[in-house]
Design a protein around this nucleic acid. Structure first.
Length: 273
DNA sequence: CTCCTATCCTGCGAGC
DNA sequence: TGCTCGCAGGATAGGA
């Protein structure tokens, strides 16, 4: 489900719930694999470990603990929630039993998510993290010059390029469409034909749409929830995502749609030439 | 290399 | 109402 704003919202919610002194009494794994095998050593390694905080990198959550870093990706449908005794749900895959009696549950019906353990100090070389691009909200690394350099010579459409986690992280199918609409760039435009001016505008709109969604607590689609159980409300601000056939909110042109880069894509052919 | 496609899996809504 | 079909916020292996 989650792109940067949703993952960041979950991260903030987890930190609010956990504070800096939560201790894991026991890890309970209800299955051995999600998208990839879950290393069974997380059970002994996280037992009695203190969770000192939860960070985010790209669309990954990193639980810093005294027993190592618990790495979690939400895939399409992953959620973390407090699950009091008796509130077990289908597709709960992992429970973190806390020493204070609370229980944190990772649930992921489609199982595109991920749980892994990173050894202390091995974060920068972990295969899931090593090749990630810059954070889009970091103005010092995600620059127009950088994006232009990434796009140089590429004939690929710009939309899958900005969704490529090696180029820039955190942008998925929703916010890619929204940012391209705001920037007035057709999602199929060849990445290599992007001018520096267009790159500047696109970067600016990637930042503002992600930031606005962040402030709104993310977008609630299907089962996205903050760790506290509330949904975000940025979905009310979508201008193109899931609005194929409806009128453009700027010029009233009927919005076009097609599969681009393997993903459903909606745009305004008049506003995004 | 670059780019595209298929695939992992379940749930849900559209359409018949 | 009930069924089937297609599609869904992500990431990646494999082939062209």
């Amino acid at each position: 489900m989650p792109e940067l704003p949703e993952v960041e919202t979950v991260r903030a919610g987890l930190n609010r719930l956990l504070g800096t002194n939560a201790v894991i009494a026991q890890v309970e794994l209800l299955r051995a694999d999600l998208r990839a095998p879950i290393p069974p050593q997380i059970i002994p390694r996280l037992r009695l470990a203190k969770i000192t905080g939860v960070r985010r990198r790209a669309k990954y959550l990193l639980f810093d603990t005294s027993g190592g870093i618990l790495l979690s990706h939400l895939g399409m449908t992953g959620t973390w929630r407090l699950a009091p005794a008796g509130e077990e749900r289908l597709h709960d895959h992992c429970y973190l039993h806390l020493r204070d009696g609370r229980r944190l549950a990772f649930r992921d019906p489609r199982r595109f998510g991920l749980l892994d353990l990173i050894e202390p100090g091995a974060e920068s070389t972990h295969p899931r993290l090593a090749d990630l691009g810059p954070e889009p909200l970091d103005a010092s690394t995600f620059t127009a010059d950088y994006l232009i350099a990434c796009c140089g010579g590429r004939r690929q459409a710009i939309k899958p390029v900005i969704m490529d986690q090696q180029i820039v992280v955190g942008v998925g199918n929703i916010y890619a469409q929204e940012a391209l609409f705001r920037a007035g760039i057709h999602p199929s435009r060849a990445a290599g034909r992007l001018t520096k001016r267009a790159a500047e505008i696109l970067i600016q709109h990637i930042r503002t749409v992600l930031h606005e969604a962040l402030v709104a607590g993310g977008s609630t689609i299907s089962d996205f929830r903050q760790a506290g159980g509330d949904g975000g409300y940025f979905q009310h601000n979508f201008q193109v995502y899931d609005r194929a056939g409806q009128p453009c909110q700027i010029c009233k042109t009927k919005l076009s749609s097609a599969v681009i880069g393997g993903r459903g894509t909606t745009w305004c052919r008049r506003c995004q030439p």
